[in-house]
């Protein structure tokens, strides 16, 4: 059978109201063959976790510019795990120092991408990560 498209939830937690960056990613992922669900801005961790569960996604991408990533990202991972999404891939984007990135990785955020990351890199990362397990 032909492979089914992978599904990705792109979410914007926190209070910042700019989602141009998130929308660029959404479009790039769609053009790379993913089915992308976008939640829009200012979503609470609970809303994001519920959406990820109902949508049956293979990965959740969190975009955040406001600097609250150290509290919001781990909280979202925790809620996802609590809902039974134990192996769901979580990645993030934003202005995140290396030190924070390491701590986030420990908290279950597989990878964070800086603001200038080429879209191809994110696509390649997801293709590789989602190629195996389902």
């Amino acid at each position: 059978m032909e492979p089914k498209p992978r599904r990705i939830l792109v979410a914007k937690p926190g209070l910042d109201g700019h989602d141009r960056g998130a929308k660029v990613i959404v479009r790039a992922l769609r053009d790379a063959g993913f089915e992308v669900i976008y939640t829009g801005i200012r979503q609470t961790p609970e809303m994001i976790a519920a959406a990820a569960l109902q949508e049956g996604v293979d990965a959740v991408g969190l975009s955040l510019l406001s600097g609250a990533h150290m509290t919001l990202f781990p909280e979202i991972v925790k809620l996802l795990r609590k809902r039974g999404l134990k192996n769901l891939l979580v990645f993030g984007g934003g202005i995140i120092p290396d030190e924070d990135a390491r701590a986030l990785r420990k908290a279950g955020v597989d990878r964070v991408f800086g603001p200038g990351t080429p879209l191809q890199e994110i696509v390649a990362y997801l293709n590789e990560k989602l190629a195996v397990a389902r």
Binding site: D31, A32, G33, F34, V36, A50
Partner: peptide
Amino acid sequence: PSSSLSGGAFLGDRLRIMAHAT
């Protein structure tokens, strides 16, 4: 609709219904 070129899709409806997410 899925894109006939890439097979991908932008599923944008949930965006307007998030108030009921939880």
